[in-house]
Simulated assay, not measured.
Amino acid sequence: MLVTARIMQGVGAAMLAPATLAVLNTTVTEPGERARVFLVAAALGPAIALVSALLPRRD
C-alpha cells in the first residue's frame, strides 16, 4: 500500500511540473519577462527540493 501511495505521489508531481509551466507560459506574454519567469521557476525547483529534504521529520 505504501508503494502504491508513493507511485501516485510521483505521478502527481510529474503532472504538476508541466501544468505549472503551461500556466506561466499563458500568463506571461512578453518574451523577456517570460524568460525571467522561467528562469526563476527553474531555479526554485531544486531549491525547494533541497529545503524539503533538510526539514526535520515529524513522526
Rank of each mutant, 00 (worst) to 15 (best):
V3C: 00
V3T: 14
R58K: 13
V51F: 12
V23Q: 01
V28P: 02
T27M: 11
A53M: 15
V3R: 10
A22S: 11
E30P: 00
T29I: 10
P56M: 09
A19H: 07
A53E: 15
G32T: 15
I7N: 07
L16T: 10
L21V: 08
T26C: 02
P46S: 01
P31A: 11
N25W: 10
V11E: 08
E30K: 06
P56Y: 11
V40T: 15
G10Q: 14
G45A: 12
T26K: 14
M15D: 05
M1D: 08
M8P: 01
L54F: 04
V51D: 05
V3S: 12
R58T: 13
L2F: 09
A14S: 13
M15Q: 08
L44S: 15
L21C: 01
I7H: 02
L39D: 13
L55H: 10
P31H: 01
A47Q: 08
G12D: 09
R58G: 09
T29M: 02
T26P: 00
R57Q: 06
E33Q: 14
I7K: 09
R34K: 15
A14V: 12
A47T: 10
T27I: 00
A22K: 09
A5D: 06
R36C: 00
L55T: 14
M1Q: 07
G12S: 13
P46R: 00
T20Q: 07
P18W: 06
P18T: 02
A41N: 03
M15C: 04
A47R: 02
A14F: 10
S52I: 07
A43W: 03
M8I: 00
V51H: 03
L39F: 09
A5Y: 02
R57W: 05
L2A: 13
L39A: 15
P31R: 06
R58Q: 13
A49Y: 09
N25T: 05
T27P: 07
S52T: 10
L39H: 04
N25L: 09
T29S: 11
A22F: 08
L24F: 01
V40R: 05
A53K: 15
R58P: 01
A42K: 03
T27G: 06
L55M: 15
L55C: 11
E33G: 00
P31M: 04
A47E: 04
V23K: 04
D59H: 12
L44R: 07
D59Q: 12
S52F: 02
E30C: 00
A19F: 13
P56V: 09
A53I: 13
L55P: 11
A41I: 01
L39R: 08
L54T: 05
A47Y: 05
Q9P: 03
E33C: 00
L54P: 00
T29W: 01
V11H: 09
A13N: 10
L44I: 15
L2R: 14
L16H: 09
A47M: 11
A43P: 04
G32F: 06
T27V: 15
A42R: 07
L50H: 04
A49W: 07
Q9V: 02
L50G: 10
R6I: 03
R57N: 05
L54M: 13
T26Q: 14
L2P: 10
P56R: 12
A14N: 04
T20P: 00
V37M: 15
A47I: 11
T26E: 14
I7G: 02
A5L: 13
L2Y: 05
